[in-house]
Each structure stands twice: as structure tokens, then as C-alpha cells.
Amino acid sequence: MNRARPAAAASITFAGLALVAACGTNPYATSGAVQPVVLGAQQQPASAVPAGATAQLMTSTVDALGTVLADGEGHTLYRYAKDTAEPSSANCAGPCATTWPPLISDAPAVAAGIDSALVGQVTRPDGRKQVTVAGWPVYRFAKDTGPGLALGRGVSADWAPITPAGEKAGTERPTLGTTQIDGLGPVLTDADGRAVYLFTKDGRGAGKSTCTGACAKKWPPLLANGRTTVPDGMDAGLVGRIRREDGTTQVTVGGWPAYTYAADTKPGEATGHGTGGTWFALEPNGCKAEPTQRPPVQQARATNPGGY
């Protein structure tokens, strides 16, 4: 049975903290476009939102798809393969836009439980403003007559329900992975292979993030959009969620809110490790990564406590 479920406004507690492994014991240590059609005022196809209104976005749960993006009434939203996200371009017009009504909004859409930085607008061929998510123009399917339906999936390979992150629903990527980084050993990564970090000023188990505003642009929070998956061998009980001040939901690992670093430009980098003495790459056991080898001075002092 399909069902719509708006994103909860209350804080989300993190799960399984009693299972947090002792830090310092890392179990992984050994291991062809459609031509636009300009329509006259009397020919404009229906929109998912009445003229002059502001669109709303929320999340919805659809069987076999998980979490998808929905409009304010819970109708599943879709993306079109013949559109583009960079730059945003809407190519579904004329009869296409009758079957797939664009989500029109005169003002920026109001997003609940969705990263507002991903939400934008694009001007359609008829001059109206269409809502975009991660650059993709979003649409409804005319035969989805109620919340929680996704009858548009499978109608055409060009159309797919869209997730709150702008991805195609039903092609979920893993939330967390691991990679070996020179000098640190195995650390957690996001779906794109970028190192995941903790911020010591948050406090372990505090249940909130202190990195907001400009900080969050430099250190983007790892957002939880749907089910959080973990790599083989990692204790899933270490992973939880918190609600951020902007309404989005952030992944936590071992009680630490998780982030990436904007300056890490490719997989296998952890250039943010040690920044300010407060940012550290996360191990799969929920602890900050430690150097795999101590610097020569520390090694000498360990064997000669009295110094030189």
C-alpha cells in the first residue's frame, strides 16, 4: 500500500549509542532534446500549483521507492531525462506538460525537511517559473490523483520519481563507505567517496550541530535523505540522525554529527583532518581517525621518556 508521510518536525534521536565501540580500537585497521514550444496565454498547460501561488516541497514515502520528493499535497514529483540540471533547462512543453504538469512557483518554493540550498527556479519556454531541485526541473504526473502514488514510474525510461537530493528514486546509493587514506588508515566516506569528518565542538552525543551558516558551507553536513546504509562489517547501531536548525536531517556516527569538507575535491582525500585542532576524519567505529604512525619525535620520546 502506498502512503505519504510528511517529514517530522521534531528532533530525531540517534540509535544504538550503547553499541559504540571504544575509540582507538578500529576493527577496520587490518583490513536527443525536445524542441521547446512557446505557448500563448490561452494555451498554457495546467500547473501543479495555481497561478500566483508559492509551491511547497516535502518528503513522502512510496512503497518500493523509499523516500521521494513531493509537493505540498503529497503528490510524488518527477525529473525528466531530456531536461538538464547544469544549467537548469525545462524541455517538457505542449502535450508533454499536460501529462506531466510542471511545478510552477512565482516565488522560491518553501521546503520542509529538504536542503533549501538545492531548491531553485528555472524559466520555462512560456515564461513561467518552474521549481528545480539540485538543478532538475520537477513535475507531477497527471494520473497521480492522490498522495503517495507514483504511477508515473515505468511509464517511460525518460521519467523517474525524484529524491529530496535530486537523484532518481529507486537507485539508492550507499550513504556511507570506507576508504584507506595514507597516514590515517580506513576512514568513513560519503556516497561520492569523500572523507567524512567530526567536529569536536559539537560534542559526542549532544544531539545537535554547532556548525551552521558559513561553517556549513565549508563543512557541508552529511544529510540523511531516506534510509542510511553502512559498509559491510560496520555496526549499523553506530549510525543515527539529528534535526538541524534549518529543518534538514543529518547523519550521526557514534554520536558525532557527520560532515564532508568542501576542499576535498576527489575521493581518497582527507585534507581537512586536524584543521583547527577540531576537525577530524571519522573511523568506521565512530571515533576520530588517528595517525597510523607516530612522528619520529614522538617515537623517540616514547622510547626515551627523559628526552634527549
Rank of each mutant, 00 (worst) to 15 (best):
Ser88Val: 04
Ser89Gln: 14
Thr76Phe: 01
Glu167Phe: 08
Pro296Gln: 02
Ala236Met: 06
Gly286His: 12
Arg301Gln: 14
Gln44Ser: 09
Ala64Asn: 15
Gly207Ser: 00
Arg227Trp: 07
Ala281Tyr: 05
Gly72Leu: 01
Gly268His: 01
Pro284Phe: 02
Asp182Val: 11
Thr210Glu: 10
Ala81Val: 13
Ala157Gly: 13
Gln42Trp: 12
Ala160His: 08
Lys218Ile: 14
Arg301Cys: 14
Asn2Phe: 12
Leu65Ile: 05
Val253His: 12
Ala270His: 14
Pro296Val: 06
Leu238Glu: 03
Thr67Met: 12
Tyr308Ile: 11
Pro291Met: 01
Leu176Asp: 09
Gly203Trp: 05
Gly32His: 10
Leu65Glu: 04
Pro257Cys: 03
Glu86Arg: 15
Ala216Pro: 03
Ala15Ile: 11
Ile104Trp: 09
Val122Gln: 03
Pro125Gln: 04
Asn2Asp: 13
Leu282Lys: 14
Gln180Gly: 11
Gly226Trp: 01
Arg5Tyr: 13
Lys129Ala: 08
Lys143Met: 14
Glu245Met: 08
Tyr308Gln: 12
Arg294Ala: 10
Arg128Asn: 09
Arg243Leu: 04
Gln250Ser: 07
Ala46Gln: 11
Ala263Lys: 15
Pro95Asp: 08
Pro108Glu: 03
Thr175Leu: 03
Thr265Gly: 15
Thr200His: 06
Asp83Cys: 02
His273Pro: 09
Gly177Met: 02
Thr178Glu: 03
Gln293Lys: 14
Gly193Pro: 07
Arg153His: 08
Gly40Val: 05
Trp159Pro: 06
Pro45Trp: 01
Ala9Pro: 07
Tyr80Lys: 10
Ala48Ile: 09
Gly16Trp: 02
Tyr78Met: 03
Pro125Val: 00
Arg241Thr: 09
Gly52Trp: 13
Gln35Arg: 10
Gly240Phe: 04
Lys208Cys: 05
Lys218Ala: 14
Gly207Gln: 08
Gly205Tyr: 09
Pro102Tyr: 06
Ala8Met: 14
Arg244His: 02
Thr248Phe: 00
Trp159Cys: 03
Asp235Thr: 07
Ala112Thr: 14
Gly40His: 10
Val68Gly: 05
Gly166Ile: 06
Gly24Val: 10
Phe141Trp: 15
Gly207Ile: 01
Asp115Met: 05
Arg241Cys: 05
Ala97Glu: 03
Gly152Ser: 04
Val34Arg: 12
Asp246Leu: 02
Ser47Gly: 08
Trp279Leu: 05
Pro95Glu: 06
Ser156Glu: 06
Thr30Pro: 08
Trp256Met: 02
Val68Thr: 12
Gly306Pro: 09
Gly307Asn: 07
Gln180Val: 14
Pro50Arg: 02
Asp190Arg: 15
Asp264Thr: 00
Leu151Glu: 07
Thr249Ile: 10
